[in-house]
């Protein structure tokens, strides 16, 4: 599936020959899709996203992914932007990670892991 030009215009986005995004693991597709939806919901503009991602990639030298993969940087940039925008409050993501970790450890293998929320 081809991406709209505006969306494809982020730094060094891996694309296939048809202009579709390329992922090397399922979670990468998930975080990519979440970023698109959060943008569509008006959390941030796409240029804001491109700038945040670019800054994160720049922290890793040339961003060639030798130390970390492209989507590792993407994930970090997404977390940062959500904090800047006040969507993720202090400690909120860390608390949720802890809750998910506990849920996973309490789930026998092969069962779906679910987070119990009030």
């Amino acid at each position: 599936m081809t991406l709209p030009d505006a969306i494809a215009a982020v730094p060094r986005l891996p694309l296939d020959e048809d202009g579709g995004p390329v992922f090397s693991a399922p979670w990468e597709a998930r975080v990519f899709a979440m970023t698109l939806q959060a943008h569509q919901a008006g959390v941030f503009t796409w240029p804001e996203w491109a700038e945040t991602l670019g800054a994160e990639l720049a922290r890793d030298g040339d961003g060639s992914g030798e130390t970390l993969g492209y989507y590792d940087h993407w994930l970090t940039a997404f977390e940062k932007l959500l904090k800047v925008k006040g969507v993720a409050g202090a400690g909120q993501l860390a608390d949720l990670q802890t809750a998910w970790d506990a849920a996973a450890k309490a789930t026998p293998h092969g069962q779906p892991i679910e987070l119990q929320r009030r």
Partner: peptide, 14 residues
């Protein structure tokens, strides 16, 4: 029990 990697925990938290 099940185990989620650090990356998976971050993605699920988000």
């Amino acid at each position: 029990h099940s185990e989620l990697s650090d990356i998976e925990l971050r993605v699920r938290a988000l």
